[in-house]
Simulated scan of single mutants.
Amino acid sequence: MTESTRRCYADVAHGQMHLITAGDPAGRPLVLLHQVPSSARMWSAALAPLARRGHHVVAVDLPGYGGSDPLPGRPELTGYAAAVTGVLDALGIGSAHLLGHHTGASVALTLAATAPDRVRSAALWGIPVLDPEFARELAAEPPPRHDDTFPDDVTGWWRSRAEHSVHRLRGPVLARSLAEMLQCGAHRPDGHNAVGRTDHDALLDRITGVPLLGLTGDREMLDAETRAVVAARPGQVELAGLGDVGMDVADEAPELLADTVTRFTDRAELLRDGGTARAGTPSG
């Protein structure tokens, strides 16, 4: 965190949501939605770069993660999306641009499909349109067992996460990610379960009028899935390939991420204002 960031809580229907904000509240609203199991802290390195480019950045801890209260019952993507809408209401924001990562991208798609009037655009890192077997695995992912096997679970999680963190910042990123994973406790798989149960193609079919950007990198675990979605939906989803980066893009390349997202939100704002520019051209 830096001096330019602020922490706060928003009261929503199911409880409280923890937020990290940055930038001028009068700026262009941009809501950041994290992967799971993680929290708004995964965006830490990108908050200031996005704020410097004129965004009012609101990084949300999704329900059950970070400092946010969990949803009651079995969480679904619609519940996460409703909680984000509650944050917008609490902050007096009518509509916002969204930047979602993995599960956060699923939440962003859900919000764009169910409440398009609240979404100015959605940039999606790793679009989780998954093969059926992987989706079933996520839907059935069990909560952690806090017994004598838990140390092995933690070690296995660290090793698995390390496979996707091959950059120079991997040590601090893995330490932060482990803390985030432990913090969510039994709610660790909730977001994955909801993603696995959801037909993302059906979500995309419902979205009209909301500009969509598929973000990916050469080392992103959902690179092929993201590119396949863009190829299958010309004119609906544009592509931005950021080169030699992976799932830790906010840590690896925060300035590049901020530049790419800002160009996209610039175009989306122009379209909202009645401009004639195209929604975007594939860039990678």
Rank of each mutant, 00 (worst) to 15 (best):
E3L: 14
R7I: 13
Y9T: 02
Y9E: 00
A10G: 10
V12Y: 02
V12W: 00
A13M: 14
H14F: 12
H14P: 12
H14I: 08
H18D: 00
H18W: 06
I20D: 01
A22W: 09
G23S: 09
D24G: 12
P25L: 01
A26Q: 11
A26F: 06
R28D: 12
L30W: 01
L30R: 04
L32K: 01
L33P: 01
H34R: 07
H34T: 02
V36D: 01
P37I: 05
S39K: 05
R52I: 08
G54C: 06
H55E: 03
H55F: 03
H56L: 03
V58F: 01
V58M: 06
L62Q: 00
L62R: 00
Y65V: 01
G67A: 04
S68N: 07
S68Q: 02
S68E: 00
P70R: 05
L71K: 11
P72L: 14
G73K: 15
P75T: 13
E76R: 15
L88H: 05
L88M: 09
A90V: 14
L91N: 09
I93Y: 04
H97Y: 00
L99Y: 00
L99A: 07
A105Y: 03
V107H: 01
V107C: 04
A108S: 09
L109A: 07
A112E: 01
A113C: 12
A113G: 13
A115Y: 03
D117H: 15
R120Y: 00
S121E: 05
A123G: 09
P128T: 06
V129Y: 12
L130V: 06
L130C: 09
P132M: 03
L138I: 11
E141F: 08
P142T: 12
P143Q: 03
P144S: 13
D147N: 14
D147I: 08
F150Y: 08
D152H: 15
V154Q: 04
T155L: 04
W158V: 15
S160P: 08
S160E: 11
E163N: 15
H164I: 15
V166R: 15
R170G: 04
P172V: 05
V173A: 07
M181V: 08
C184T: 09
G185F: 02
H187I: 05
D190C: 13
D190N: 13
G191P: 08
G191D: 10
G191K: 08
H192I: 08
N193H: 08
A194Y: 09
G196K: 02
G196R: 07
R197F: 11
R197I: 13
D199F: 03
D201M: 07
A202K: 04
L204F: 10
I207V: 09
G209Q: 00
V210G: 00
L215M: 08
G217M: 02
A224R: 14
A228F: 12
V229K: 10
A231G: 07
R233Q: 12
R233Y: 13
A240L: 02
D244K: 14
V245P: 14
A250K: 02
D251K: 07
A253Q: 07
A253G: 06
L257D: 02
T262Q: 07
T265V: 10
E269M: 11
A277F: 06
T281L: 11
S283M: 15
G284E: 10
